[in-house]
Design a protein around this nucleic acid. Structure first.
Lengths: 156, 156
DNA sequence: ACCGGGGTTGAGAACCGGTTTCAAGCGGGA
DNA sequence: TCCCGCTTGAAACCGGTTCTCAACCCCGGT
């Protein structure tokens, strides 16, 4: 949050109430928030924030490198604070939608190596593993196909 | 292509001209095609194929396991034939959009291991590495920022 | 404090992949 | 060849995201 204020100050960008509201909504959450989630969290707040501004501020935060943007194939994006935490990957349950985060030093090293091999200057990457979590494997009736059409298609 | 006919025959699904046209457009391409690309490739063909049918046939092909679906964050999907080729990962140039494919046995093993560790029954995964390719690093004027907004946004 | 102007905001409209609808048209077994 | 059920196409629809533009606010200069 302080890093956000600093970023804005550095480039002489106005620090409006709306921007602070959106930024704090994200920074004080550990979840992967959708735009709907953010709007809901802001509702009832004394500062009203329009949808357009939420999107614009998210853009700003992503460009600032303070927020990370994800697409879990639900048809809309999710955002999470990048704070001081290191980069991590996602394990997504195709049955219940649960998202588990993990990190792997070996993967970090490997992706750098691979980028190098192909002459790429590495920038960022995304590794998402889809499967069925332990809970769903128990009380499940072969959900993989069913859920796939909900997740994959669905779209806009 | 023959695998497609076989698949349709096996489950008594009508093999229409439209379906053959869409399938061959994909199977005879080495690219990652967007729906626009496919429609363009089909234009001028004697068999006219509507947009809805292109989507429906793609769905069919994906479910059949003959075509793979990708989202490179451009705001729309791309498709590629899965033929007999093994699963592979993507290296995407954020400057010119070029996509390089690669495979890594180590990554395959690692993702299975990681899914196991978290009690997930592994299904599929996606690893995309974003960076700047060799060509773009030469005649480049720090394109990362510019291109990001072109690639990343677009969406819906 | 006050001013002024350039960046920001909000409501709604526009946009755009993608999906659904439904009447008309085919495929292919009998 | 007949017929039924699945498929097709055009257009309407959907929902997330972006654009528009007049009103508004942040903030440096005074």
């Amino acid at each position: 949050m302080e890093r956000f204020r600093e970023y804005m100050r550095d480039r002489n960008l106005p620090l409006t109430h709306q921007r602070e509201a959106v930024a704090s909504a994200i920074f004080y959450s550990e979840e992967h928030l959708s735009v709907d989630d953010i709007e809901a969290a802001l509702r009832g707040n004394e500062v009203h924030v329009g949808k357009a501004t939420v999107y614009r501020t998210l853009d700003l935060l992503v460009r600032a490198g303070l927020v990370d943007e994800h697409d879990f194939g639900e048809g809309f994006r999710r955002f999470e604070p990048l704070s001081a935490r290191t980069h991590h990957e996602h394990l997504i349950c195709t049955s219940c939608g649960k998202v588990v985060e993990f990190t792997s030093e070996r993967i970090e090293r490997m992706k750098a190596l691979i980028a190098d091999e192909h002459g790429f200057r590495h920038h960022h990457h995304r590794l998402d593993i889809y499967g069925v979590c332990g809970d769903c494997q128990e009380h499940a009736v072969e959900p993989s196909e069913t859920r796939r059409s909900e997740l994959g298609r669905g779209s806009r």
